[in-house]
């Protein structure tokens, strides 16, 4: 399984993401500059955290208009996995691949600490190595992670089991304590907490590791087995 980590101007978690996948999971991965990126030969696309384009206009808004996001949309339409973390999540909502929007944290401050999350859905390709209802520790690092959607959208998210992770102690004011959601098809995951920063105990938690392990396992089970 081959991973592409896309770097935008202002991304700053791209190397963490790349290291996690390449050196901890020992998976095949490339770090790609957004301008020249050709995503055709990759199985999964990882959109890392940071402050693409300085968060100008709205977080993720400028990156969402880039040409590489057209490729990400095609990739997602083929049912292939896309993971957006932090700014990556913001880019996914801005590009319409995920519903809702991420607003300024309720208390206005930038927050950078470990949070306890509940795994709400362990049936997605990203979460089968977790159990439903399990609590895990992942770090957050954001100023605009306050997930917002209208009531109809929230109802849809709930009914389709698209809410994947919730905060136990909602740090930012997110609707329904939402920390991460998938699209209706289940192949695009966006989340504010950083699984790539929790891939070995030395970092304070290794709970993020199973997210990538789930992805690789499920890829082998479904795609490679059917190929």
């Amino acid at each position: 399984m081959k991973f592409a980590v896309v770097t935008f101007p202002g991304s700053n978690c791209d190397k963490d993401m790349y290291e996690a996948v390449k050196n901890i999971l020992k998976a095949d991965a490339d770090l790609l500059w957004y301008e020249h990126a050709n995503l055709e030969n990759y199985d999964a696309i990882l959109l890392p955290g940071g402050f693409s384009y300085g968060d100008y206009l709205r977080t993720g808004a400028i990156a969402a208009t880039s040409k590489v996001m057209q490729q990400v949309k095609q990739h997602a339409a083929q049912g292939k996995p896309v993971l957006g973390v932090c700014n990556g999540f913001q880019i996914l909502t801005e590009s319409g691949l995920l519903p809702g929007a991420l607003l300024r944290n309720k208390k206005l401050s930038f927050m950078c600490h470990q949070e306890t999350l509940t795994v709400e859905n362990s049936q997605t390709i990203f979460t089968t190595a977790y159990t439903k209802g399990e609590t895990i520790q992942l770090p957050i690092a954001h100023g605009e992670g306050n997930y917002y959607c209208d009531e109809i959208t929230l109802q849809e998210l709930t009914e389709n089991q698209q809410i994947v992770f919730t905060y136990q102690n909602n740090p930012n004011g997110s609707v329904a304590n939402i920390a991460g959601i998938v699209n209706k098809q289940g192949n695009v995951l966006g989340m504010m907490p950083h699984p790539e920063r929790a891939v070995e105990q030395l970092l304070g938690s290794a709970d993020g590791l199973r997210l990538f392990q789930s992805l690789i396992h499920n890829w082998r089970e479904t795609y490679v087995a059917n190929a």
Partner: peptide
Amino acid sequence: DKLLANPVI
């Protein structure tokens, strides 16, 4: 609609 405003918010 495409860029300047986000119709969600």
